[in-house]
Design a protein around this nucleic acid. Structure first.
Length: 218
DNA sequence: AAAAGTCGCAACCGCTTGAGT
DNA sequence: GACTCAAGCGGTTGCGACTTT
């Protein structure tokens, strides 16, 4: 996309002298070269080292949301949509956490995709479902929400069966640490359970025992 | 063909969080 | 504990591309 950089809003959290607006190819190249050369350095130093008239925030955002090699371009697949919807159900607008479970997609990508596609899709589906529900009252049956003890040792989960088969290459939003991995092992479990066929959707004693083994007792 | 409306993406803003002192 | 500053995050905006009228 090309646009006139000067057309963006005038107020800014960055110093007045810095350039704003759409990044040029030259700027992208300078930033990429700088990151390749210096690796993980303070973002505040990046503009100077790269020779860019951009604020550090702008550089960081450009790198994380666009230039990082692992980013997947192109439209979202159906299973990605499905996963986003499920995660959003559980986490709300915590885009960075959701992005952490969807390899190659950034929080910004997902947020934009949600706002422009999925939200409308869901609203449409919900209104269709509401029409059906008006005709017959359905009581949904599902597991009660589990409260997760705050002082659990989440790292134990790493070796448990709950992370078995975790998607290879699953990454967090690129360039960010993923402290949420352990914390959301329970989430993966819940989602796997939820994706079972209906006749398998029962929380058996075995599962409860596994849960206890993994997370311990209160 | 032109105008109006909508969509999708990139970028910015401002608040929050966390680390260092 | 208070303060400062960098990084992270979600919300919002601007604009080109595309579609509809």
């Amino acid at each position: 996309m090309t646009s006139n950089p000067s057309s963006y809003r005038s107020s800014s959290s960055c110093p007045a002298a810095v350039r704003k607006g759409t990044w040029s190819r030259e700027e992208d190249a300078l930033l990429s070269r700088c990151i390749e050369k210096y690796g993980s350095i303070k973002w505040t130093r990046v503009p100077q080292l790269a020779g860019l008239s951009r604020c550090s925030k702008s550089c960081r955002l450009r790198w994380l949301n666009y230039l990082t090699p692992l980013i997947k371009r192109g439209s979202f697949e159906e299973d990605e949509d499905d996963l986003i919807i499920r995660l959003h159900n559980l986490l709300g607008n915590r885009w960075s956490l959701i992005a952490g479970r969807i390899p190659g997609r950034t929080a910004s990508d997902i947020k934009n995709h949600w706002n422009s596609n999925l939200r409308k899709k869901l609203l449409k589906n919900n209104s269709e479902m509401k029409i059906e529900d008006d005709e017959r009252v359905v009581k949904s049956i599902g597991p009660e929400p589990l409260s997760i003890p705050p002082n659990r040792n989440w790292s134990r989960v790493q070796n448990s069966k709950f992370v078995e088969g975790k998607q290879e290459g699953s990454s967090t939003a690129v360039g960010e640490s993923n402290g949420a991995d352990d914390q959301f092992a329970w989430l993966e479990l819940m989602m796997r359970e939820d994706s079972e066929p209906d006749n398998a959707k029962c929380y058996s004693l075995d599962n409860i025992v596994n849960w206890e083994e993994t997370f311990g007792q209160n």
